[in-house]
Design a binder for these strands. Structure first.
Lengths: 105, 105
DNA sequence: TCAACATATAAATGTATATTTATATAATTA
DNA sequence: TAATTATATAAATATACATTTATATGTTGA
């Protein structure tokens, strides 16, 4: 059975969307979507400062979008749920289509 | 054929997500999701000031999430694509599940 | 325990954005 | 055309948030 519209809580939804509304956080999510990665690896791959990455990882953790796991001196982050990725894909596709539709008028 | 991850543009995605990251804008989207409604109707239903509604409608229009149509003195807004709603439903469901999973530990 | 590395946090700064208040524009009708 | 209604815009304010710089904490191995 599917969720009905009126069961949706705009507050919860806004909280999640806010976390997804930053380009760097999205890049981090994609970065850790295939496999867990250490902070230093993410820093290297995304070419952003370590404190900035740490700050965004903290936000992503607070929003429960990533799982954290310490292993020795390294801290590994990974996507907490694969649906995150599929939702972002759908949103991206929608964005593309909206843009296409606009241009074609 | 589905979209691949690497085709996703984080910038476009962040732009859309930013527009969805406000509780009042989400309420407006739900408000106009079943039928087109005039600004004054939205104002009345959501109990927000008219300039605030107008401001958010402008943002929603800028992000192509709503369509606008003038009819006499009234301006009607409606959801531009039904996928918006289904994506929001999925995101909401995900949020609920993430929360449930967290509490159960 | 000390040195080196990995990550997190704090303070400071700049910028973006939500909201309110006041006013302007646009359309209708008398 | 004046008055009224509907909506949009502008200015002002407050707040939230991203980023940088500096520093602290935690872990490992010598």
């Amino acid at each position: 059975m599917n969720k009905k519209i009126n069961e949706i809580n705009p507050q919860t939804l806004a909280f999640l969307a806010k976390c997804l509304a930053d380009e760097n956080r999205l890049r981090i999510l994609f970065c850790v979507s295939k496999e867990k990665k250490s902070v230093s690896t993410i820093v290297e791959e995304l070419q952003l400062s370590q404190p900035l990455i740490s700050h965004h990882l903290k936000e992503l953790k607070r929003s429960l979008l990533v799982n954290v796991e310490r292993c020795g001196p390294f801290v590994y982050y990974e996507l907490s749920d694969d649906r995150i990725l599929s939702i972002l894909e759908k949103l991206s596709e929608l964005g593309d289509d909206l843009l296409k539709a606009r241009i074609s008028f």
